[in-house]
């Protein structure tokens, strides 16, 4: 499949892609691991609560104490909350990964016509290109990597990168000489000097961005986490102190194993 169609397809990937979906379901259980959960303090507290209510539910069943239906309902709600949060996160990650895979495939399949010192061209994979290599790109070809036009004028379809559907003119000299890997030459022939090594191209950076490996939390996200963690502590305090108040109010002793 040609890379432009592939890149175009990324945008069309539907929310309910079955492969991503089933993977996300598995991941949402795998993320229950406390070591992963602790990175998100609020959901970690919910998970701890879910484990505690489950233990207490088992205790109640074993000792025929408390109200089974009520305990079961609370337990299910808590587990559902944790699992759904994990699922939503796994979905976002899965979609990011799928997009990155498609982009990577598009990059790997592009062939380049490298200009040898004797004036002939040789066919190499675009991933073999190094800074300073000179490639010839003719009408219909993909530009194999980021570079600078050193000879010729061509109209280039940059829609894969910029979204602009009308072709743009790229020519040697001046400030319209830069071309990006993954775009397509529509007419004429140009010679391009490659200016980036594999792993540093625009496309590579785009892949990294989509994969989210190096994504940092925005300042507002951090502040929101602090707010939510604070509210969680407040609510924990309210619930924990409810027990002494209940003891004072004369709640029967077994109640601590049925109403938590």
């Amino acid at each position: 499949m040609d890379p432009v169609a592939q890149i175009g397809q990324i945008r069309k990937k539907s929310l309910a892609d079955s492969a991503i979906l089933s993977r996300a379901v598995v991941d949402s259980f795998r993320k229950l691991n406390p070591r992963t959960m602790v990175k998100n303090p609020v959901m970690f507290v919910v998970e701890v609560g879910a484990v505690l209510t489950t233990i207490q539910l088992g205790w109640n069943v074993f000792h025929h104490a408390g109200q089974f239906g009520f305990g079961l309902q609370i337990t299910l709600w808590l587990w559902f909350t944790v699992l759904f949060a994990n699922f939503a996160e796994a979905m976002a990650e899965g979609r990011g990964k799928a997009q990155a895979d498609t982009l990577r495939k598009a990059r790997a399949e592009t062939q380049a016509h490298r200009l040898r010192s004797d004036g002939n061209t040789e066919c190499v994979a675009s991933s073999k290109l190094r800074t300073g290599d000179i490639v010839v790109v003719t009408a219909g070809d993909f530009i194999p990597g980021d570079g600078e036009v050193i000879e010729g004028v061509a109209s280039v379809d940059e829609s894969a990168i910029t979204g602009e559907s009308a072709p743009v003119i790229r020519e040697s000299g001046g400030d319209r000489s830069a071309v990006t890997g993954g775009t397509r030459v529509l007419s004429d022939e140009i010679k391009v000097r490659i200016t980036s090594n594999p792993g540093e191209t625009f496309l590579d950076r785009m892949i990294k961005l989509v994969e989210g490996a190096s994504r940092q939390k925005t300042p507002n996200e951090i502040a929101l986490n602090i707010l939510l963690a604070g509210l969680t502590i407040i609510f924990l305090l309210a619930v924990v102190t409810l027990q002494p108040f209940a003891i004072y109010s004369g709640a029967p002793c077994w109640s601590r194993f049925s109403y938590v």
Binding site: P219, I222, A223, I226, L227, A229, G230, L231, I233, I234, L237, A238
Partner: peptide, 18 residues
């Protein structure tokens, strides 16, 4: 209003509750 301010505001609310 940034995370530091939110953190301090939350601290003030927490102390009262606690």
């Amino acid at each position: 209003i940034e995370s530091y301010d939110v953190k301090m505001a939350m601290l003030a609310v927490l102390i009262l509750t606690f």
